[in-house]
Amino acid sequence: MSSDLQNKLEELAGTNETKGGALVLCRSGTPAAMAAILRAIDNTILPRLLELKVGASHISVLAGGRRLRAIHAVSGDLPSDGLELGQPLSRDDEAMQNQVGQLFKALTAKEGVLTLLRKIDPKASDQSDGGLEIGGLAKSWDVDLNATPPSALAQFIFSLGEDVLSHVEFGGDGIIDESGAADLNTILKSDELQEKVTSIQKETRQGQNASGKNQVIVLSGHLPDGALLCVTQIADSSALLAVQKKALSSVATAWSHV
């Protein structure tokens, strides 16, 4: 059995879903965030409790059979007045659908990272009837289900949050994105640093075997104030990042989710 098929079956069966912590879906505040939530529900075959979170704001929903069954809990600064928590959602109740849509839109409008935690929960199994089908919701809420999520590299960078002091992302035509402190960006874009990085990459085992492989290299001692230099290659994109000097563990955690 191929590993892809095995992974898909495990995903559908729900094994290991609560072991690895929350999954980073995407950056909130983008059109892709609503689409990511609906796709997550659409990918939920067996009854599950889905916990969606951005910062301190959180929505738990009951899902299954590729449908949104019920809103289970809401916390944080979100519009929950009038919501009937735990009650089955029906496509005949248009007002409630709109209210749920406003709830999700409020969550995805928050600044931060949208994460998903799937849980096996008896309450999800209790909700086996009814529910809202994703295609209908996408139409009703004006969500493009094909909205492209950020690239894996963009997600890696974003999941590091405020640990990233500065970054420069390279694509086929040169620099395609950058953020952060201008002085650090100038250093990251300098020929001197890039030549140094290329030289180091050539002398590492990963650099020598890098063709088409994802890699990250974190180096200390190359940037001011103890900042770490992070060199990353994912698929066809690469980036140089300046990260906080204490952020080595954060980089490792973010990399483990790529």
Partner: peptide, 17 residues
């Protein structure tokens, strides 16, 4: 490899898939 990646620093991490 350690000599190369630690030339200027105290710690280095190399990650693959």
């Amino acid at each position: 490899e350690a000599e190369v990646v630690l030339e200027d620093g105290a710690v280095s991490l190399l990650g693959s898939d």
